[in-house]
Simulated assay, not measured.
Amino acid sequence: MLRFEVTTDPAKIDFAAVYRFLNAQSNWAQGIPRDLFDRAMRNALCFAGLLEGEQIAFARVISDYATFANLVDVFTVPEFRGNGYATRLLTAVFAHPDLQGLRRFTLATRDKHPLYAKFGFHPPLFPETLMERYSPDIYKTG
């Protein structure tokens, strides 16, 4: 069995690979400027999924580490999808000691609802209380 590990050590995370994926392959961050990406990574708890030392998965959590967290930028490199690596990555995310006891943990997903349901996520109990400012095309130019 291949060795899969999850790390939060920034020295072991290939941020250049994360940037390439988010900028070119994600449906949520295409065109993100590199300096903005770097600032976002510095101000979050980042998780890399490594298969035999090669980074194949990533997730990022934005949190105050006391009451709230938001899960973002979750992906598995396409050729490794369907092997349970996202589940293993998320298991590590939700087990992280700094993310315990939070009142609210949120995320937004277009199509991975069954994956997140395994971790207790569901539509908001009171959607009428939620609001957002959303600019989906903010990174697009021209």
Rank of each mutant, 00 (worst) to 15 (best):
N23T: 03
E5M: 08
Q100T: 04
D111W: 00
D111I: 04
P33C: 01
L90S: 01
G84T: 03
T141W: 07
I56R: 03
A16C: 00
R39S: 06
P114Y: 07
S63L: 03
W28Y: 13
Q100L: 07
T87Q: 14
F105G: 01
Y116F: 14
A92E: 14
I138L: 15
A40Q: 08
Y85K: 05
Q55E: 07
T129C: 10
D9R: 11
L51K: 09
K112C: 02
L45F: 04
V61P: 05
L115N: 05
W28M: 05
A108Q: 10
G142F: 07
H113P: 01
A95P: 00
G101Q: 07
A57W: 02
P33S: 06
T91K: 09
L90G: 01
I32P: 10
N70G: 08
F15E: 07
Q30I: 13
G120I: 13
P10H: 03
E52C: 03
S26W: 00
L50T: 14
T109Y: 04
N43A: 04
I32E: 11
P97D: 11
V6H: 08
A16Y: 00
I62S: 00
R39V: 00
L102H: 05
N27K: 04
T141F: 06
Q100A: 05
N27H: 10
Y65A: 15
P136V: 02
T76C: 15
L51F: 02
V18P: 02
T67G: 02
P123Q: 08
A66W: 05
V93L: 11
G53N: 05
R20T: 12
T87F: 03
T87A: 06
M131W: 13
H96T: 07
A69C: 13
P97N: 03
G82R: 05
C46K: 01
A92S: 14
L99P: 02
V74H: 12
V74I: 07
T67I: 06
V6S: 09
L2Q: 12
N43Y: 03
N70H: 08
R110A: 15
H96K: 06
F119V: 12
K140M: 10
F126V: 11
H122A: 15
K140A: 15
F4M: 05
V77I: 14
F94N: 01
F126N: 13
G142T: 13
P123W: 07
G31D: 10
P78N: 08
E54T: 12
E54H: 12
V6C: 11
T7H: 02
F119S: 09
R20M: 00
Y65L: 13
Q30Y: 02
